[in-house]
């Protein structure tokens, strides 16, 4: 069972996240003024960059978890489960980044999608980690799955700068500056900057809360799996000898074919 401290901190973070998000919504939708150039559209800035930041943070945590599992001194299945939980939340937030960006892009640029370097990298990032999650679903024993997915997670993370560099060159070597830069970063102050900062804090808090939940579920799933296995072994042991031989006549050959690591 999860410890009492873990449960309480999870609940506390949940409540704090809820309050922070509510504050961001109120500040973002009512208190802050519309932008001179962009009008009401500017309000997406309180959501879109924080969501993107959380996605990167999540993948960072996945990579750290993967390294800690691969490194034999710190090897523990918990790191792998943490990496998986973080990647799942990361994929959700990457999806949200793409969706909110698209919603902003349609009125601002007139298109849902443009082959900007950052957009393209984000889309590839989304698919890379979807692949990671798909790999995790391949049936294997927990150690094997952990090793394979840790390697895949780490390679995906190393791949990101290469993908980014190639896409940046692709869009900039043969044409002018990117579209995103001028509109998002500069000239923001006062209430708006505060709200943006609040957005970053609140979405990071939401991430922490989701991660703790997802991690807990992963731990419980693992426990169920182990318990089921123990139960099956126990049942098999109780069976009379002759019956088990009849049920699995090729038992030895089967075991030899696929060495089990359980």
């Amino acid at each position: 069972m999860e410890s009492r401290g873990y449960r309480w901190s999870r609940r506390a973070i949940g409540i704090v996240s809820l309050l922070l998000v509510a504050a961001t919504v109120i500040l973002g939708l009512w208190i802050t003024p519309p932008d001179v150039v962009q009008g009401q559209l500017v309000r997406l800035i309180y959501v879109h960059p924080p969501v993107a930041w959380v996605a990167y943070l999540a993948y960072g945590v996945t990579s750290i978890g993967s390294i800690l599992y691969l490194w034999k001194r710190t090897r523990n299945l918990k790191w792998d489960l943490l990496a998986a939980a973080s990647a799942e939340v990361g994929v959700v937030f990457t999806g949200l980044t793409l969706i909110t960006g698209s919603i902003w892009g349609r009125p601002a640029w007139g298109v849902w999608w443009t082959w900007d370097a950052r957009l393209t990298t984000t889309a590839l990032l989304f698919v890379l980690y979807l692949g990671y999650l798909a790999l995790r679903r391949v049936p294997a024993d927990s150690h094997q799955r952990a090793v394979r997915s840790s390697i895949a997670g780490l390679i995906a993370f190393i791949d990101v700068p290469i993908v980014h560099q190639s896409v940046v060159w692709w869009r900039t070597l043969h044409q002018g500056a990117t579209v995103l830069n001028p509109s998002l970063s500069p000239k923001i102050h006062g209430e708006m900057a505060m709200t943006l900062l609040l957005g970053f804090i609140s979405f990071t808090s939401v991430y922490a809360w989701m991660l703790m939940h997802r991690y807990q579920i992963a731990i419980l799933e693992q426990k169920v799996l182990d318990a089921e296995l123990d139960q099956l072994i126990e049942e098999r042991r109780r069976e009379p000898d002759s019956e088990s031989r009849q049920a699995r006549p090729t038992n030895d050959v089967g075991n030899f074919d696929q060495p089990s690591k359980v």
Binding site: V127, L130, G131, A134, L135, V138, A152, I162, V163, W170
Partner: peptide, 15 residues
């Protein structure tokens, strides 16, 4: 599974 894993990773090579 293989194309899903591999294609995004080697996309810089294609490019």
């Amino acid at each position: 599974l293989l194309p899903l894993l591999l294609v995004p990773v080697v996309s810089p090579v294609l490019l």
